[in-house]
């Protein structure tokens, strides 16, 4: 029927409001509000500026990585080594701290190690054409393995006091440095993915890598940059986390990769690539953080909340498909 309309093809069929209303992000927003209301009824301690501010530490570091991961997954690749990069970057920071360097060098080291790790993944995937899921399972063991070799069962402690700012400092009132950084990065990544040529090519590659290449997109280069960004964000997260904990153990951020991927998928990013948005990821991060916090206030252990997250992850994808099947069955 759509084929019959000739000439004067409209730009869009649906208005902006309609599209927003039907979007995954709107659903997530509704869930977020629901969680917020439930939490505030469930616990008298929830609606407190400082408590809420504390709660943001549950997701800020993971979310920073999730932004870059979202773009990587939209392009059809994945990086499971992000948590291991945190471990290696943190270990490297501890190492240079022991050598007597100050905060600027520490931060620079963390970020550099992140970028190098990302470049390593990127080269293996884009130059050698290896599947990213296996490559990054390998580098995940390798990066964390190096931390274990350096540290064994020891830990780096005694970071300089001014270094604590990144994970413990506040920019203004209840707004922590991490929260502000999270917000700034969210905006940067939203602009990068949704408002630039680069972001457009990421979607093109994710939907059809061959078609994108045949349209003149330099697919290998774009993917390499995405691995670099993911590595860099892992380095940033390493700085924040190390500063917040004040110590480095090789087991730091263990298992985060799966939480980050869950966050990205929950945010509406298609694990097979091609679709997803940064606002979706932001909302998913906030929901996961608030659920954790809410359950914490109710003294529900974190592991139980992981059931909730797991169900949310599968349900979010399964339910629309079940409804579609039921609909088809009837019609």
């Amino acid at each position: 029927m759509s084929e019959m309309v000739a000439r004067n093809i409209p730009d869009r069929l649906t208005s902006r409001a309609q599209r927003v209303l039907k979007s995954w992000e709107t659903l997530l927003l509704a869930i977020a509000i629901l969680v917020f209301i439930t939490n505030s009824f469930a616990s008298p301690y929830f609606l407190n500026a400082w408590n809420l501010s504390d709660a943001t530490f549950n997701f800020t570091e993971k979310a920073m990585i999730a932004f870059a991961m979202a773009m990587l997954i939209i392009s059809g690749e994945i990086d499971l080594s992000v948590a291991a990069i945190i471990a290696l970057a943190s270990t490297a920071m501890g190492f240079v701290m022991e050598l007597g360097f100050g905060t600027p060098v520490l931060v620079l080291t963390g970020l550099t190690v992140g970028i190098i790790c990302g470049a390593f993944n990127g080269v293996l995937v884009t130059r050698l054409g290896l599947p990213s899921i296996v490559v990054t399972i390998g580098t995940m063991s390798l990066f964390r393995g190096i931390s274990y070799i350096v540290l064994g069962d020891k830990a780096y402690t005694g970071y300089p006091t001014d270094f604590a700012f990144f994970g413990q400092g506040y920019v203004w009132w209840v707004f922590s440095f991490e929260l502000v950084l999270f917000a700034v990065l969210a905006i940067i990544y939203a602009v990068l993915l949704h408002k630039t040529n680069f972001g457009r090519t990421v979607y093109a590659i994710g939907n059809n890598p061959v078609g994108a290449q045949f349209s003149g997109v330099r697919t290998a280069r774009v993917k390499f940059v995405l691995f670099l960004l993911t590595g860099l964000m892992s380095g940033v997260a390493a700085v924040c986390l190390t500063s917040r904990l004040g110590s480095t153990r090789p087991s730091i951020a263990f298992g985060w990769e799966l939480e980050i991927v869950t966050m990205v998928v929950l945010g509406g990013v298609n694990i097979l690539g091609g679709a997803g948005t940064i606002p979706g990821v932001v909302l998913a991060a906030i929901i996961m953080g608030m659920v954790t916090f809410g359950f914490g206030l109710l003294n529900v252990p974190g592991i139980v909340m992981s059931i909730f997250i797991g169900l949310l992850l599968i349900g979010a994808i399964a339910l629309p498909r079940v409804f579609a099947m039921v609909k088809r069955g009837r019609g």
Partner: peptide, 29 residues
């Protein structure tokens, strides 16, 4: 299906994919 069209992207984005430099300003869409 595989090499010509980027299925999943809208019509207009398919058309502008190789011409993004022309339609954008300083890399912004």
């Amino acid at each position: 299906g595989k090499q010509g069209a980027v299925i999943g992207l809208p019509i207009f984005q398919n058309i502008t994919l190789p011409s993004l430099d022309k339609t954008s300003r300083k890399g912004f869409l």
